[in-house]
Simulated scan of single mutants.
Amino acid sequence: MNSSNNFIEILGVDDCKNIKSNYFKEFDFQSNIKLEDNSIEKILSINVNINIESTDIIKTPIMLSNEGVFFSGYKLKVELIMNMKIKYMFQNTLGLNDNKLVKTVYIVLPLEHNNTNMIDLLRKKKIIINSYIEDIYCELREENLIYTNISAIVTANFTES
C-alpha cells in the first residue's frame, strides 16, 4: 500500500482493517537517523517491512500485572527485524539509507488451546504469527537528521490442522 506525507512516498503500510486476533501486541518504533551526507535537501521515499526472526514461549506466573494485564501463564516472545530504506536527495545526488532495526515484543497467550499447552503448540507449528505495519511517519528534522515513527501490530492465532 502506498501513501504519502509531505510528498514523501510511503511504502510498506498494510491494510489492517480485517485483522482478527485475540492475541496481539501493538507498538510504535521511533528512530532518529543521523546521516553522514551533508545538507540533505529532501526525503523522497521510505520503505519498511518486518521479518519475524525468531519466536519462543516464556512461562510466566498466573497473576494480574501492575498494569492490569492478566498473565495466563505464557507469553510469546517475538523477535522482529524491521528493514527500512530511505531514499533522499543531497547536493543533486540520490542517496539511500538502509537500516535494520531489531525489536522484541511479547504477546500474552492463554494457558492452553484445545487442551494443548502453548509450548507444544509452538513446537508443532500450530501458532501462526503475523506482523503488519499500520503506519509510517518520516520527516527531515535537520539537514542530516531523519526522524521515523513506525506503528505496527504482531498477531498470534492458532491453527487446527
Score class of each variant (00 low, 15 high):
N92R: 15
N117V: 06
K25Y: 02
E26A: 08
E79F: 02
Y23A: 06
Q30E: 15
L96S: 12
V105F: 01
A152V: 10
I58Y: 02
K25D: 01
K34N: 07
F71Q: 15
Y74K: 11
D120L: 09
N144Y: 03
L11N: 14
E26K: 14
Y106E: 09
I81S: 04
N97I: 05
N66R: 07
D28I: 09
T93Q: 15
F7V: 14
L35E: 05
P110N: 09
S151T: 10
E134F: 03
V105Q: 03
E41W: 03
E139W: 02
E41K: 14
L76E: 03
E142Y: 11
S39W: 01
I128F: 13
L140R: 09
K103H: 12
P110V: 10
K25W: 00
L35C: 10
I133M: 05
S72Y: 15
M82I: 07
I153S: 03
Y147V: 06
C138F: 05
S131M: 04
M89D: 11
Y137S: 12
E142M: 12
T155W: 13
I127A: 01
M1W: 05
N130W: 08
M82L: 13
G12H: 04
I128N: 15
N32E: 12
E79I: 05
N49H: 00
N47K: 15
I58L: 12
D28N: 14
T148Y: 01
S54Y: 01
G95R: 12
L80D: 01
L76I: 04
I150H: 08
G95S: 12
T159P: 06
Y74Q: 05
I43C: 03
S54M: 00
M63P: 00
E160G: 09
L94D: 06
I62P: 07
S45M: 00
L94E: 08
S39T: 03
K77I: 10
G73T: 04
I133V: 13
M1K: 13
T148M: 03
N114M: 07
E160Y: 13
P61H: 12
K34W: 00
V108N: 12
H113L: 04
L96F: 13
V102D: 08
I133Y: 01
L145M: 09
S161P: 10
N83E: 02
T55E: 07
S131H: 03
K85L: 09
N117K: 05
E67C: 00
N32D: 10
I153P: 00
T116M: 07
N115Q: 04
S72L: 14
E26Y: 02
I10R: 08
N114A: 05
Y132E: 03
E67D: 03
R141C: 04
L101H: 10
I146C: 07
L76T: 03
K75V: 08
K77F: 05
I40P: 02
Y74F: 14
V69I: 14
I8F: 06
K20W: 01
N149L: 10
N18K: 14
I33T: 06
S45G: 00
V105T: 09
T104V: 08
T159V: 15
V105K: 04
I46A: 08
I10D: 06
L11R: 13
D98F: 11
I52A: 04
P61S: 15
L76A: 04
F29G: 10
V154N: 06
I133W: 02
D120T: 13
V13A: 11
H113Y: 14
E143K: 13
N38F: 04
N49A: 00
